[in-house]
Every structure is written in structure tokens, then in C-alpha cells.
Design a protein around this nucleic acid. Structure first.
Lengths: 356, 356
DNA sequence: ATTAGCACTCTCTCACAGAGAGTGCTAAGA
DNA sequence: TCTTAGCACTCTCTGTGAGAGAGTGCTAAT
């Protein structure tokens, strides 16, 4: 009894963090792989069969007990096999899964799909979300690329009705925004076109901040137009970018979400933009694919999820975020390689777009 | 025994379709209301309590049996109360629910939300979807308004890189589209601006078809630009409009979708645009709110759903679709009044936009 | 260090019983 | 003729308990 107590209490803080033996690593890998695939805890007997290790189940049991002490596995019920802990998944991601690439046939399929679609940013994002979801077998999340410091390239003022019109602006990176606008006075198309023609040359290449400086002394109409331009350009860099997601069906099929309330939580999470704002801060100045597993996440809603994300884009010009979300029990290897490939692909597309 | 057989067989084709008595109407109304609210079948005893009719449960049972013969109710299990059939819901919608309006406080809340948002079509759609979902307590579906015969108002050609650029076009109803385009030759901004300035006057006010006629004899660059304009304008009228949906959480909470596969079907339905194409044909030239209940739907995926839709927009200028989707067991009164109100609101917004 | 053996624990499935709810039918009452 | 009370019946739902199955930890032997 005292023996048992000692073990239980020592589970959390494991004094000497000696490296795992090769056999332990094999066991952990098989458990992660198998649990991810089946969703059912793995017992010692099944493990012997699956791992090919030529020892008895009893030996495996000892090793499993040791791995549990070290915090890599856990024990849902007294009987019923073991499952990986978050730490176990983390170890798997760091040391056991190898450095997997998508198979070249998969890469080709994806490339092919992108070739078939028109040169439309919206469509790229849509397609990226759909493709990533399928490749990773999870919910995918793709944000639009956010220009880092958008500069004005072109401006167009349109009259729809006497006092209602559009401000259309194009930035140097090719993004287009339109805002409906109330003009302060009646303004016909001639007046507006003339104003736009007059405004563009001095403003070309300026940032939102710089444009703000030009408002003083201008006509009322020009001030309204400039204010709208400024709003639009600031909105472009806002970190709460619109986010597409796709592939909910994959995740709802998982037993973790068979409970409707779990599914609901995920939906509100994805629906309400809070997802990106929760994740984005942790991506700052860390390139490549990042993985957050269960408890490693900072907000409660994410504690039962695994997240694989990457930024994409062209340094200092545009940056977007894409990734996948699923239960902690997800195929991290597959997700990571999918996210990595898709981020590279989207980055290439952005680079093309920006002429590199 | 023979008696029982007679009733069972006579259920489908009910010879004399005499009008329901007042008491039967009350019973049917209470059953629909209560079943929608609770999701549990209603028995004779509960019905007496709920309806306030001062007769014994036995009498109610006779009436219920009669309603079942007539096809308005059904019997899931020998015991366990009755639930409405599709025909029962249909009768409820046609004769029993009254002509309900959203409460004026609800109307005000919604109006207020629309006032707070900027004058952006995208945002209106988003907001309409979110609001409708909440008001109706179901999944909402809102399509962007489709211009009936878009006419060109303005055209802008932008150079991003030597051979890559943007075609931006504005139609008379204020819709803006941009397409990324490969120019056939190197084209600097001056050339493109000059071309745009030259193209706009003759093309202003023309439809896609009419623009197609202008391509002959033009320069290669102009032909590419015109082709893009034509593509964009045709895409605008394509009936497969992009559709926003919102409020999945409401529906996933319903027991009908606690089974993950049901939920999945709904997701793929909403995700894959097939929804609008399945519904749209049936909306042709029928104004106002339409209701499709279960078996009334033509495709199998929709057989277990109730759908309440309406077109919105300005006649002959823009037309969009909005509605809600839920299990057949849905609060049709609430959904109908929400859809009706929201369609009116969006139509008003469109009318404002088109200057009426 | 490994293994066989064993007692133990926990889940899962199935069957069964009893409560509860509701039904249809019959016969009596208004 | 409509309504009602009574009754036998059916079906679901909720335990409960038994038994199988899987897996574990521990001990003792190899």
C-alpha cells in the first residue's frame, strides 16, 4: 500500500528524467499509433502482437508501468489498457514519428488541384482549407494572408446614388477592398473621379499612418474618402483575420465528439474568431510548424484539442496562418506533414504573387 | 383483429377528407407545439393537462386515433404517445399557428444590430445569417444577393508584376469583383490605365453578353481584359451563389442529430453548395416565405429536414435567398416569422442600396 | 532481467424484472 | 350519439445481477 502511494505521488514530478530505452520508445510509439488509429486503450497482450517485440506480456506490463510512472502513459480504468498522455504525444512528436513528408503522389494531387483553380486569393484559401482538411483528416483552419504594411496603390471613388457610393482601394500587394460610403454632399461621378485622380499620385505607396497625415486641409469630400481608406487599410492588418475552416465532418466522426456538447464547443470556438486570437500570440517569431497538445494550450476550451499550425506567406510582406484542429488523439505525423506542405505551397503562391 | 387491419390499411388513403373539428384542431396544435418543445411523444393524459380541454383522457384517445387515421399523427411504438407526421406539421403551418410576427422588441434588437454595422454587403450577409440563426433557433442559410442582369459601371486594370495584374470591375448595382489575370504581354500601369479609360465609355451599362460582342478587333491585351470581365459578370449571375450558414450549434443540440452520422450529412449538405441548388429551383416565381417539410422535399438528404426559405432583394435587380434548416420537428411559427422579417429587412437594405 | 501464474478489478453485454406510460377496446352512463 | 371508467395489453426505460473478457500488479521462479 505504501508502495502504491509512493508511485502515485511520484507520478507528477519525476525526479530523474533519464532517457527512454529503445524498447520503451518502441512501446510508446506503438501505443500512440494504435490508440490514434483505434481510439481504444492498448493492453500488454495486444502490444506484444502489434510491436513484434519478442517478450512476454508481463515484461511489457513492467515497461508500461514504468512509462506511466514517467508520465507518458495513463490508465483510464484499473483494467482496460493504457493510452498516451499529452506528454506521451509530445514525446512522440519530438522523437518518435520521424520526419515525415506527404507522399509525392499526394503532393502531386494537391498541386494539380491548385493548378486547376483560377488565380483568385479567395479560392486559394477555400481550396487550401478543403485540401488540408482532407489530407490531415481533421478540421482545417486557414486565415487570409494579412499584409504586414499595406501601401496604397490605387484608389477609386464610385457614385451609386447621390449621397451613397463606394471607395475601392488596391494596395501594393494586390489586395482589393471596397467600402460603402455616405458622401457628405451630393457628389456625381465626375467630381468623384476627379477627386480620386487628384488623390492617387500624392498617396501612392503610403501606409495608413502616412495617409492619415494628408487629411488636414482637404475638402470635406476628400476627408471622408481618406478616412475610409485609412479604416480599410487598418482593418487589413488587424490580427483578427477572417478564417475559413473545413472538414468538420472528420472530427465529428471521432468518438471524442460524439457528445453533442463537445461538438458544440468546437463549433462556437471555430465560429467566433476566438480561435485565431487564442493561437496567434503564441506563433510570434517562431517559424515552421508548431504543435500544441491538450494541456499545453492556454485556454480551457482548447485543453482537449490538439492543434498543428504554421504561418505562411512572404516575410515582411504578408503573413497568414493555417493549421488543423482535432482531438488530442490525432495523427500528429500526418497533420504536421500536411500543414508543413500546405504552408510551403501557400507561401510559394504568395511569393509568386509578390514577384519573387 | 380484422378491425385492426382495416384501420392500418385505411391510414394511407383517407377517403373523405372532412375538415377537422375545433377540438381536433386544438389537439393537433398542442401536440405539435409540445412535441417541438420537448422532443418527446405526447400521450392522452399529458394532452388533457396541457390543452385545458375538459374531457377525459379516453375521449382524447379517440380523437387522437381519429387524427392518426387521417394521417396527421403517428405512433412510434404501441405505447409512448403520438407525434405529428409531416402532414400534421403542414396542417399546423397552414391553419393552426396563426400569423405570427416577431415581437417588436426582437425586431428592434435586430434593427439595432444592423445599424451598428458598417455599410458592407459581406457584413450584412454575415450578420443576417447570425441573427436569423439566433431568432429561429436553427441553422440559417443566407446567400449573397445575385444581380439579375449586372451591367458594367466601371473597370480598372492594375499591374502587379510585369505579366500579372488585376481586373477590377464595378457593376451598376455596386458589386465589386476582382480577378487576378495574366497579361499576354508585359504591360505597365500606364498602358493598362489608358486601356481601361478607353474601354469604360463604350462598355458602360452593358451586360456580359453585350460586352462579348466588343472583343472582336480589339488588341490582345484588351481581349484578355474583356474576357475576364465577361467571366466575372457571368459568375455573378450564376445560380450557385456562395452561401453563409450559421447556428449549427442549435441544431446539433437537437436529439435528431445526436447521432454523428446525421450531423455529418447535414454538414456536407451545407458545405457543398448542393443545398441551394436543391432548393432554388422550387422557389421560382413564388414570392414570400416557402416551407418544405420532410417528405415534401425532393432529394433524399432533405427528407428528414424542415426548411423555411424566402427570396429577398429588389425585383428584377438583385435576388438572394435566405432561410433556416432544422429537423422536421422545428418551431415553424418562429422560423417563418424570423425568415419573413429578415427577408423584409434585407430587401429594404437592398432597395436603399439601389436607390428606391 | 524476464517470465509464468494468480488474484483482482473494471468494463461490457445480456437477460430479466418491475415501474411507468400509454394504448385500444368494451361496456356503461349522459 | 358522445363521453367516460375500467381493464388488459404493449412497449420503453431503468436498474440489477451474472458472466465473460481484458488487463493489471504482484510474487516467485527461471
Amino acid at each position: 500500500m505504501s508502495d502504491r502511494n509512493r508511485r502515485t505521488t511520484s507520478r507528477k514530478s519525476t525526479g530523474s528524467e533519464q532517457p527512454l530505452s529503445e524498447r520503451q520508445r518502441v512501446i510508446l510509439r506503438v501505443i500512440v499509433r494504435e490508440y490514434v488509429a483505434s481510439g481504444r486503450p492498448i493492453g500488454s497482450k495486444a502490444l506484444v502482437r502489434l510491436s513484434g517485440i519478442d517478450v512476454s506480456p508481463a515484461t511489457i506490463r513492467n515497461e508500461m508501468a514504468r512509462l506511466e510512472e514517467l508520465g507518458y502513459l495513463e490508465h483510464l480504468h484499473t483494467s482496460g489498457g493504457r493510452i498516451p498522455t499529452d506528454k506521451g504525444y509530445r514525446y512522440f512528436v519530438a522523437h518518435l514519428m520521424g520526419n515525415i513528408e506527404l507522399s509525392s503522389s499526394e503532393q502531386l494531387t494537391i498541386l494539380h488541384q491548385f493548378r486547376q483553380v483560377e488565380l483568385q486569393l479567395e479560392q486559394w484559401i477555400e481550396l487550401a482549407a478543403a485540401t488540408l482538411a482532407r489530407a490531415a483528416g481533421n478540421v482545417s483552419v486557414v486565415s487570409a494572408p494579412i499584409p504586414q504594411t499595406p501601401r496604397l496603390r490605387h484608389l477609386e471613388l464610385i457614385s451609386l446614388q447621390p449621397r451613397l457610393g463606394l471607395v475601392i482601394l488596391v494596395t501594393t500587394d494586390g489586395a482589393v477592398r471596397q467600402l460603402m460610403t455616405h458622401w457628405p454632399d451630393d457628389a456625381d461621378q465626375e467630381t468623384l473621379s476627379a477627386l480620386a485622380d487628384a488623390l492617387v499620385p500624392p498617396l501612392r505607396g503610403l501606409t495608413a499612418d502616412e495617409i492619415a497625415g494628408h487629411a488636414a486641409g482637404a475638402s470635406a469630400l476628400a476627408r471622408v474618402a481618406l478616412a475610409q481608406v485609412e479604416i480599410a487599410m487598418r482593418a487589413m492588418t488587424a490580427s483578427v483575420a477572417p478564417v475559413r475552416h473545413s472538414g468538420l465532418e472528420h472530427v465529428l466522426a471521432q468518438p471524442e465528439f460524439s457528445d453533442a456538447t463537445e461538438a458544440q464547443e468546437l463549433l462556437t470556438l471555430l465560429g467566433g474568431g476566438s480561435f485565431v486570437s487564442a493561437i496567434l500570440p503564441r506563433l510570434e517569431d517562431a517559424p515552421g510548424v508548431r504543435v500544441f497538445i491538450g494541456e499545453e494550450n492556454q485556454t480551457d476550451e482548447l485543453r482537449r484539442l490538439g492543434i498543428v499550425v504554421s504561418t505562411y506567406g512572404v516575410d515582411d510582406e504578408v503573413v497568414g496562418v493555417l493549421g488543423v484542429v482535432g482531438p488530442t488523439r490525432m495523427a500528429y505525423d500526418r497533420s504536421i506533414s500536411s500543414v508543413r506542405y500546405m504552408a510551403r505551397l501557400m507561401s510559394d503562391l504568395m511569393a509568386d504573387l509578390h514577384g519573387q
